[in-house]
């Protein structure tokens, strides 16, 4: 059991590390890889909690996560960006610089911890820190989405938010029925496809994926 606790803690730490790395990364390719690795560590945490509880459904969820979020979604995103010019992909414009983003992310992590320890959460493995880190990933994902002015990065930001929720769910509610977990993953895949269609159309009309021209509608 202590081995599992240590391994679970390591997986959680790696997830949050990837999320911080996302704020550092300026190229969409690097961001996509970081998302893929983050999903891998989320799947690892799910497997570890499965080992701790003997709940086989968690292995299934980990497996589906591997196929869908570690492999399929990054592949789709890479395909989406393949036709775009280098300048756009390698230097995503920011509305908040990297150092300020990282400091804000540290603050958000603190807030997530402060909120999580106030809740009487129960779970088989690291419920409080797992949920706190899941919440931190959610908040940092939102920060990333609103400060990265590029449709690909915004899509990845929303996807990491979902990763954070998945991490928190495995920590505090590993018994959530498999059907619900699969439905959520199905929705994620559908959303990626639709986001992809819109990115393609926007890119076709403006030959770029930055969001700077998306400010026609107001009031």
């Amino acid at each position: 059991m202590p081995v599992l606790v240590a391994a679970g803690g390591l997986a959680i730490a790696l997830v949050i590390l990837m999320q911080f790395g996302l704020l550092r990364s300026r190229a969409t390719s690097g961001q996509t890889w970081l998302y893929s690795f983050e999903s891998l560590f989320v799947a690892a945490f799910s497997t570890i909690v499965g080992l701790a509880t003997g709940n086989g459904e968690l292995y299934v969820l980990a497996g589906v996560t591997l196929v869908a979020k570690v492999a399929l979604v990054p592949w789709l995103v890479f395909r989406l960006t393949s036709g775009l010019e280098e300048r756009v992909k390698d230097e995503v414009p920011l509305s908040l610089g990297v150092p300020s983003s990282l400091i804000s992310a540290l603050l958000l992590t603190g807030i997530a911890f402060a909120a999580a320890v106030r809740l009487p959460l129960a779970g088989p493995l690291l419920p409080s820190s797992g949920f706190a880190m899941g919440l931190a990933v959610v908040l940092i994902g939102f920060l990333f989405t609103i400060t990265r002015l590029n449709t690909i990065s915004q899509l990845l930001g929303i996807l990491t938010v979902e990763n954070g929720i998945f991490l928190g769910t495995v920590a505090i509610a590993p018994g959530l029925p498999l059907l619900v977990g699969l439905l959520i993953l199905f929705d994620v895949l559908m959303a990626v496809l639709v986001f992809g269609v819109l990115v393609r159309f926007l890119a076709m009309r403006h030959s770029t994926v930055t969001t700077s021209h998306l400010k026609e509608l107001a009031g």
Binding site: L121, L135, V138, I158, I165, G168, A173, I184, E216
Partner: peptide
């Protein structure tokens, strides 16, 4: 242009909102 902008804004904001709603479902379950 404006239809695509509206669609992008819509899916991004609604997905963010629904992410919080999913967290609500998980917390209620917990």
């Amino acid at each position: 242009d404006s239809a695509l902008e509206a669609a992008w804004k819509y899916i991004l904001i609604a997905s963010a909102g629904l992410a919080l709603a999913l967290l609500a479902v998980v917390l209620l379950y917990a």
